[in-house]
Design a binder for these strands. Structure first.
Length: 137
DNA sequence: TCCGTTCCTG
DNA sequence: CAGGAACGGA
């Protein structure tokens, strides 16, 4: 589907992997931020996940929005994104608190949980003219 | 064996 | 971000 946005590109195996790599970096960034803020919360004395919530004005949200939505093309970030982000943050928090980060592959358990929460691609993105449509909203 | 993802690095 | 190694699932 991503390929349809680059109609002027002829995708061979290499070019395709580059495209995939590019988008994989987005997910990677997401997890890096989650771990970073989970550790920061712990250093700040947070002891319970109940104290960890992701709102539209929190620092973590701003960091993510600045990365994925710099120009604020999407004024209404899906509520579901906030929910999943909070679950992810708490997942990292609990794992670190439990000292699971001593295991080299401690993040895998978290990834396994979070990937199941991935949302379907919104219909609007499936349109070749989605860029125009989004900007006109 | 191929492909998508993560880790590490620059 | 991109490049490359490693890994794991299909």
């Amino acid at each position: 589907m991503l390929k349809t946005y680059f109609s002027d590109v002829k995708f061979n195996r290499c070019i395709t992997s580059q495209l995939i790599k590019w988008f994989s970096n987005f997910r990677e960034f997401y997890y890096i931020q989650m771990e970073k803020y989970a550790r920061q919360a712990i250093n700040d004395g947070v002891t319970s996940t109940e104290e960890l919530s992701i709102t539209r004005d929190c620092e973590l949200y701003r960091a993510l929005n600045m990365h994925y939505n710099k120009a604020n093309d999407f004024e209404q970030v899906p509520e579901r994104f906030l929910e999943v982000a909070q679950i992810t943050l708490r997942e990292f928090f609990n794992a670190i608190i439990a000292g699971k980060d001593v295991d080299p592959s401690w993040k895998k358990a978290i990834y396994k949980v979070i990937c199941k929460l991935d949302s379907e691609v919104p219909e609007i993105f499936k349109s070749p003219n989605c860029l125009q449509e989004l900007l006109h909203e």
